[in-house]
């Protein structure tokens, strides 16, 4: 408290002295000749002091309000987290438990087709559950602050192909990707960039029409690895372009499924490479994500092939 009030006292004394120096005769000295001027000086000091104490108190109240707001925001975020998580984790778990029960209780009443459908649902639910857990683990890696990126040389074309092949078979034909034959090798954390692409591709599949192509381009520019993912969905409302990377953010009226973690992981992992993610709407429709990842490059022609 003493240290809080000291600067206040100091500024009051200083302004009283300044006033004295410039306005109380004899001017431009700290002398005070008349008694009423002494009174004036004291009065001014008191005013300055009251002023300072008041503004100090107001500032303190403001910061308290800000803390409270911050706390409320955290609580709100925490609630969103619980809601999203319980929904996102419990839906697949409910599917799995329900399907197992049905298979156990009514084996004899189910047609082979129904049985295989139930198994198929369990399969999809477990894959979804696994993806959510993966994203949660990634998020906690980011939040912990212990995420260390391990850069090593990687072939960007190969990386993109590998992630496309990890998508469900039926969706693979939607991807349009021509390998860039002139692409140098980049020094990246291929594991993290794989997760980034996995999330972007998954999003593109989820939120765009079933036959709309997803175009991917990779190139090297000014010591950056640049990857663009362009879809032909309805794009993002302009007002939401900024917010989509926020943790647990979901577009208003967004369809079921999705934790709101995917894009914030995309941003987090790219920023871990000191890079950035740009999002814009294509004038012809659809969204364009651009990853700009600073990376050391190595051109193949530098190597002797014997």
């Amino acid at each position: 408290m003493l240290f809080d009030i000291l600067p206040v006292l100091f500024s009051a004394v200083l302004s009283a002295l300044t006033w004295n120096y410039f306005f109380i005769p004899p001017r431009f000295t700290f002398h005070i000749d008349k008694a009423q001027d002494v009174l004036m000086f004291l009065l001014y000091f008191v005013i300055a002091l009251v002023n300072a104490v008041l503004s100090f108190k107001i500032r303190k109240a403001e910061s308290k309000a800000r803390d409270k707001e911050e706390k409320e925001k955290t609580i709100k975020l925490y609630n969103t987290l619980l809601n999203t998580l319980s929904h996102e984790l419990r839906t697949p778990i409910a599917t799995i438990i329900g399907a197992i029960d049905t298979l156990q209780i009514s084996t004899n009443k189910l047609s082979p087709l129904q049985q295989s459908e139930l198994l198929n649902e369990m399969d999809k639910a477990s894959v979804r559950l696994n993806r959510q857990v993966e994203n949660l683990l990634n998020m906690s890696r980011l939040e912990s602050g212990f995420l260390k990126i391990k850069r090593d040389w990687c072939d960007g074309n190969e990386l993109i192909y590998a992630v496309i092949q990890k998508q469900e078979q039926v969706f693979q034909t939607r991807f349009r990707f021509e390998p860039n034959e002139k692409l140098p090798l980049f020094k990246l954390d291929s594991g993290l960039i794989e997760q980034v692409l996995q999330n972007l591709f998954h999003n593109a599949i989820q939120y765009t029409p079933h036959d709309a192509p997803i175009e991917i381009v990779i190139k090297a520019e000014n010591l950056n690895c640049i990857i663009t993912v362009r879809d032909h969905g309805s794009g993002f409302p302009t007002s939401e372009l900024e917010s989509v990377f926020e943790k647990f953010y979901r577009l208003p009226h967004s369809k079921a499924g999705g934790s709101g973690l995917g894009l914030s992981i995309v941003k987090g992992f790219v920023e871990a490479h000191e890079g950035e993610v740009l999002l814009e709407n294509n004038p012809d429709g659809g969204a364009i994500f651009t990853l700009i990842i600073p990376a050391e490059t190595s051109f193949i022609s530098n190597l002797k092939n014997e």
Partner: peptide
């Protein structure tokens, strides 16, 4: 590792 990437390619 860039040697390896190139030659595997």
């Amino acid at each position: 590792t860039q040697y390896l990437r190139v030659f595997v390619g």
